Simulated scan of single mutants.
Amino acid sequence: MAAPDFIGYDELDDVVVHLKLAATASELHGSLCGFLAGNGRPGKRPLLELLHLDAGGVTAAGRDQAALDLLVRQSQDELADPELGFEPLLPADDRPLPERADALVDWCRGFLGGFGLGGPQIHERVSEEGREILKDFASIASASLDFGDEDEDEDALIEVHEFVRMGAMLLFTECHLPSQPSSDTLH
């Protein structure tokens, strides 16, 4: 059986449940994307170790580890995609709105935690716009959601999703640019 070349939300959720992780699939993906955006370098270390999710002796092996390795490669490729093809891994659009909204909150929470693993020096590389995005991600991550008009709520979720998608790519790009000299003088 050939290994898949793409891991989706449901496949990642199966791995998370199988490994009994204390994170949702969306939070795990958000953590990975935050780590990568914060200039984290996976190297050969397993994903759960990178993100400090290996507490309690949780280790992935076999099919689970292969899925997590694929997730790392896929996320790196998508974040760096010049065609802006990155997508946060969230439940499908046919899932209930509250489930999808909660997953986006989890994704942002994970992103912030993963980004923080880049250390304090990474924040020096982030522009004012990038700092605003991080603040907005923090607001989303701590949001308590209320639902009213389903059409309005769906539109709002689409807007927030697009903001998060673009914000993650912007932060990734900023943190992967070569350091600029502090002088405005060209030599």
Rank of each mutant, 00 (worst) to 15 (best):
T173M: 08
N39T: 02
M169V: 13
F35S: 05
A60F: 10
L186N: 07
A37T: 12
L68E: 13
M1F: 05
R95Y: 13
R109L: 09
L47H: 06
V72R: 01
L47W: 06
L50T: 04
L19T: 12
G57W: 06
A92M: 02
E11I: 00
G38F: 06
G110C: 09
Y9V: 02
E174M: 07
P120T: 15
F86G: 07
A60Q: 06
N39G: 05
A60R: 11
E162H: 11
D153N: 11
S142A: 13
V164R: 14
D102P: 00
A55Y: 01
I140W: 05
I140S: 06
F111W: 14
F111H: 10
G38E: 04
F6M: 01
G118Q: 12
E83K: 12
E132N: 14
S127N: 10
D69E: 15
D102R: 10
G114A: 02
A138E: 09
H176L: 07
C108W: 06
H52D: 12
L134D: 11
Q74L: 05
G38L: 07
L12P: 00
I133N: 05
P4Y: 06
L79N: 10
I133F: 02
V72W: 02
F86E: 06
A92V: 04
L157K: 08
S179Q: 14
P181V: 07
L50P: 00
S182V: 03
D151W: 03
K135R: 15
P46G: 08
E87P: 00
